[in-house]
Amino acid sequence: MRAVVVRSFGGPEALEVEDVPVPRTGAGQVRVRVEAAAVNPVDVATRTGALVEFGLVDRREVHGIGWDVAGVVEEVGAGVTGFAPGDRVIGLADRLDVSLGAYAEQIVLDADALAPAPSGATPAQAATLPLNALTADQALDLLNLTEGQTLLVTGAAGGVGGYAVELAVLRGLRVVAVASPADEKLVRGFGAEFFVPRDAELSTAVRELVPGGTDGAVDAAALGTPALTAVRNGGSLTAVLGGAAPFPLRGTRVANVWVRADGERLAELAGLADEGRLTLRVEDTFPLDQAAAAHERFAGGGLRGRLVLIP
């Protein structure tokens, strides 16, 4: 089968399409024929070698790439009862130190990393859900806010930020969204009660809307200290970008969210997508052998949906 791998770190040209063996299915695992794989910032970090530089993964001869997958079950391993060949599924490949990722024609994942795909979504749309929605959901869990409290979301028009706004509203939180002025209508459509342009002086603008500052923040734009300064004393902040958490000043609680696969929760998120409560956004699709072109497009920015590879 074909797969995209990285042998030498660098720009988009570092993505190589190779013929590799079909992965074997072990006990408790499922082999999926990939119909769509979304492009995410972590994929860029894999390609450039940033994950090795930061000590998150060891250097290896071949690095697999890609986390998000939507596809069809081809084979189930011993002990798997929740899935059968032909099932349409989504899943998250959350291991970094691998030679094969979701940029491939087939992938093997643990059964508990998979969930039924949203029934009303195309494979490309479904592939945008796992990494970003689980990251947003787990970031909110770390804040431990309660209904009626206020939440700041930076990067609210992005993949994680958009889901964070929608999921926060479903939890009964009042959201202050930070994004480009051109995206105000978009993020208010996600349910944000307040809006702050990203070029504003953040703390001042937020505190004018929410005296004393918000109860918590999901810092999807990796602003760091400016985002924390907009949070009240004793509040909490979750940093989405690994290692980007600011110092916990003023008695705040600060954490990084290190996303993990969670098939059970992913199934619930897929249900929310089917109900129209989570917005699945695809900017464009590319054939698998044009992964480099997709990464070039990703580097250009200005995206309001995910780029998706189609094997």
Results as ranks from 00 to 15, higher is better:
48 T>Q: 09
50 A>G: 10
51 L>E: 04
55 G>E: 00
57 V>H: 10
59 R>L: 15
70 A>S: 13
71 G>C: 09
71 G>N: 08
71 G>F: 01
71 G>H: 07
72 V>P: 08
72 V>I: 14
79 G>E: 12
80 V>Y: 05
82 G>R: 15
83 F>R: 14
86 G>L: 01
89 V>A: 02
89 V>I: 07
89 V>S: 04
90 I>D: 04
91 G>S: 08
93 A>W: 12
94 D>G: 13
94 D>H: 14
96 L>F: 15
97 D>K: 11
97 D>A: 15
98 V>H: 13
100 L>T: 12
101 G>P: 08
101 G>E: 04
103 Y>C: 10
103 Y>S: 12
104 A>K: 09
106 Q>P: 15
109 L>I: 03
110 D>Q: 13
110 D>W: 09
111 A>G: 08
112 D>G: 06
114 L>N: 00
114 L>D: 00
114 L>G: 00
115 A>L: 02
116 P>D: 03
117 A>V: 03
118 P>N: 03
119 S>K: 15
120 G>P: 12
121 A>K: 04
122 T>H: 09
125 Q>W: 04
126 A>Y: 00
126 A>Q: 01
127 A>S: 12
130 P>Y: 02
135 T>I: 00
142 L>W: 00
142 L>Q: 08
145 L>E: 00
151 L>M: 10
155 G>W: 03
160 V>T: 08
161 G>C: 07
163 Y>I: 04
163 Y>L: 07
166 E>N: 06
172 G>E: 05
174 R>F: 14
177 A>P: 08
178 V>H: 02
181 P>V: 10
183 D>P: 11
186 L>M: 13
186 L>H: 10
187 V>A: 06
